[in-house]
Simulated scan of single mutants.
Amino acid sequence: MKKRFAFSTILISTAFMLGTTSALAANTSTGTSKAEITFTTNAAPIIVNPDSPNPNTPYRPQDNGGNTPTGNTGPLTLDYAPNFNFGSNEVLVNKALFKAKDQKPFLQVTDRRILPTKWDVKVKLSTFKDNGGKDSLAGSTLTIDAGDVQTLIGLPINAAPTTGNVTLTPGNPGDAKVILASAAGTFSTWQIYWKGNGTDNDRITLNVPVGVQVEGKHTATLDWTLSDVVN
């Protein structure tokens, strides 16, 4: 009887402990919380140096004889467009082609959109005006050769936009030419870079017929337009 009693006690004790453990495991308490982040495109993208397009080192082209950035904001922006300066030249009876003096002209576009749609940049040239505001340099043409298309250092290369040679006729409203066109999915900052040769820039030329080379300063405006393309 003593052995039987001892055995029964062990069984009862074990059953009691198992029942207690099961009851404790069922007694749980839960809650929920959030992890949250917001992204915006309210600030204009930085302008990067075309010689080393690093997003951590902003570049000020206006400090180096270039144009002022556009300051455009949003998910798809034209950030910077170049000036072209052809310098001071003697009127010669045997010279019609003039090369730009700019050594670092570039165009910059930033695509921060979630939807990978196509886009392009068109450029057109206004009529040249002389110092008195009169139309000048009739019959001239401005040619921009294909530049080097590049993106930010350290970013993976998506399908790069493409570019090619364009020739613009001053004052022709229908003369807007596509100078940069994207494939779908181009999330990055992109540039066309027309790097000079140290003295002139063979990639940007102005052809002015000899008979219209009138003394004085002549200025035209380049209009650059970035647009979504219907896909």
Rank of each mutant, 00 (worst) to 15 (best):
M1C: 09
K2D: 12
K3R: 12
R4W: 13
F7V: 15
T9K: 14
T9Y: 15
I10S: 09
S13P: 07
T14K: 05
A15M: 13
A15I: 11
F16G: 11
F16T: 10
M17F: 12
G19M: 15
T20E: 08
T21Q: 11
S22A: 15
A25H: 10
T28P: 08
T30S: 08
T32L: 00
K34D: 10
E36W: 06
T38H: 09
T38E: 12
F39E: 08
F39W: 07
F39Q: 07
T40S: 08
T40F: 03
N42T: 13
A44N: 01
A44I: 03
I47D: 02
N49M: 06
P50G: 03
D51N: 08
S52E: 09
N54K: 07
T57G: 10
T57P: 07
P58L: 06
P61N: 02
Q62C: 08
N64A: 15
G65Y: 05
G66F: 02
N67W: 10
T68I: 14
P69T: 01
G71K: 02
T73W: 04
T73F: 05
P75G: 12
P75N: 13
T77N: 03
T77S: 02
T77D: 00
D79F: 05
D79H: 09
F84N: 06
F86T: 06
S88A: 13
V91G: 09
N94K: 09
L97N: 12
L97W: 04
K99A: 14
A100K: 02
K104V: 11
P105K: 03
V109T: 05
D111R: 04
I114T: 13
L115I: 12
D120P: 07
D120H: 13
V121T: 01
V121C: 02
V121I: 08
V123P: 00
T127R: 10
K129G: 04
D130W: 00
G133E: 00
S140F: 00
S140Q: 02
T141E: 06
L142Y: 00
T143C: 04
A146T: 07
D148K: 15
D148R: 13
V149F: 02
T151M: 09
I153P: 09
I153V: 15
L155A: 15
I157C: 04
N158S: 14
N158A: 14
N158G: 15
A159S: 15
A160E: 08
P161E: 04
N165A: 15
N165H: 15
V166T: 04
T167S: 04
P173E: 09
G174D: 10
A176E: 03
K177F: 07
V178M: 03
I179M: 05
A181H: 02
S182E: 04
A183Q: 11
A184Y: 06
G185I: 03
F187G: 05
Q191C: 06
Q191L: 09
I192N: 01
Y193I: 11
W194H: 08
K195Y: 06
G196Y: 05
N197H: 06
T199R: 11
T199F: 12
T199E: 12
D202Y: 09
R203Y: 13
R203I: 10
T205I: 07
T205Q: 10
L206G: 04
N207S: 04
V210E: 07
Q213N: 03
V214K: 11
G216P: 01
G216N: 06
T219I: 08
D223V: 15
W224V: 00
T225H: 01
L226D: 01
V229L: 03
V229Q: 02
N231R: 12
N231G: 12
N231D: 14
